[in-house]
Design a protein around this nucleic acid. Structure first.
Lengths: 233, 233
DNA sequence: GCAAAAGTGTTCTCGTTACACCCATGC
DNA sequence: GCATGGGTGTAACGAGAACACTTTTGC
């Protein structure tokens, strides 16, 4: 037993710990991902998820928040662990595991200068380029997770502006689930939760009639969630 | 950018990577967990999940399989990543992150000698002792995950013997979800999937009449799952 | 006045829940 | 013959799916 422990300790210093972020944004009804082109070796010139090694004095989500702030200027981003990628051969250059996390951001809020400065770019999920290492796999897994999660939790609101219309919300869910939803059933269901606060303003950018703006009632949802409420769409 | 990368590289060697396993077993309708009492410092004498540091030449799940084999003699165990625990203060003795994984085993199969040799013991989930570090939190999270997962995937069969009766299966789901289920509805629903193979044998250990034994049709399930089938209970 | 998106109700179907009695057997 | 757990059917209910027309307004 002691020998076993010592064996593993001695080998341990060879593993590097990184985190990679799958950053989702919603741009005019299209689900997009933020990736950047590496400028330095190894793998310079290749598209990559944004990520970093984890410092000894920070947790994994803190590392992700640090790098998200660097690239977008945003703080308080929705962030959730996806899973760990730890195949021995995943990174030919080093023995490195990556704990992938996905983030949802309001695409209109990010700092454009920072994004450009780092060579980052938004791609629609259908037109994503090849990414280095196992990053395409991470994106695939993150999309599946997002779809699963969006069925049971109201995470979509993290992607929308604070004020949004019901048709906008529907477009988001259609973008996530890749299928058309019925207007009437969608509206009925969403309003039935009593979690949308109708405002007195209308958004007239997409129609002459204008659509009423709503806010999501995060406070009320928090209370409901604790008593086991399921937000199922 | 270059400086940033170098900064993180240089600090990197201080993080140790471990995995801890939440090992579930089913003993006469009671959901149990395998934990062991540490015999060596640090933290000798305290109850702990079984785990190990991850070697440089193995993936994280491989490390978990290695340690599960050490403690139980079992291979081909159901194993799934739970999440990463990476708070800076989680382990006062070292900067160490742990990728927790939960395992489901057939409790009648494990090697008793190995378990005893390592000071391991099964506890009902209601009578679990205090565990070291954040291991109680891991157990709590694993239970939640197990409950969530058991609603949508047929993972319960990993805990049962290969041949089982419907009443046994029902007891398992009642143990996982902590509530009584209706016999008739449960039986109807389970059989409606067409995934249980009825055998010609009966189990007479719990009644005079005897209950028919069934096998789970893993092959058929695999096919169904790929076409998006949901095993909802 | 017309094009274009927003908004609104009802019916049907199907799955979930609730519920009570007979069966087989060992003792 | 009786106690014990195994096995079966049906009715009521509710949530989800399908479906078409009216409203508002800028041009």
């Amino acid at each position: 037993m002691i020998l076993e422990i010592e064996r593993t300790y001695s080998k341990q210093d060879k593993i590097l710990v990184a985190t990679d972020c799958i950053v989702f944004g919603l741009d005019q009804g299209i689900l997009k991902l933020l990736v950047f082109k590496r400028r330095i070796d190894p793998l310079a010139g290749q598209w990559s998820l944004i990520g970093s090694f984890v410092d000894a004095d920070e947790s994994v989500p803190d590392a992700a928040r640090r790098v998200l702030y660097q690239f977008t200027g945003l703080e308080n981003i929705f962030l959730e662990e996806l899973r760990t990628y730890s195949n021995i051969e995943r990174d030919p250059g080093a023995r490195c595991i990556s704990i992938a996390q996905y983030a949802l951001i309001r695409i209109e809020d990010y700092n454009k200068e920072l994004v450009e400065k780092h060579g980052a770019k938004w791609f629609g999920i259908d037109e994503l380029p090849n990414l280095l290492l196992d990053h395409n796999q991470m994106v695939f897994d993150a999309l599946n997770r997002l779809r699963l999660k969006a069925r049971r939790k109201p995470i979509g609101f993290e992607l929308l502006p604070e004020k949004f219309t019901i048709p906008q919300l529907q477009l988001l869910y259609e973008a996530i689930h890749l299928r058309k939803l019925d207007d009437r059933n969608f509206r009925k269901k969403l309003l039935s939760f009593g979690l949308l606060i109708k405002l007195d303003e209308k958004d007239r950018t997409t129609s002459k009639k204008g659509a009423f703006l709503y806010k999501f009632d995060f406070e009320k949802y928090k209370v409901l969630e604790e008593s086991g409420f399921d937000f199922v769409i």
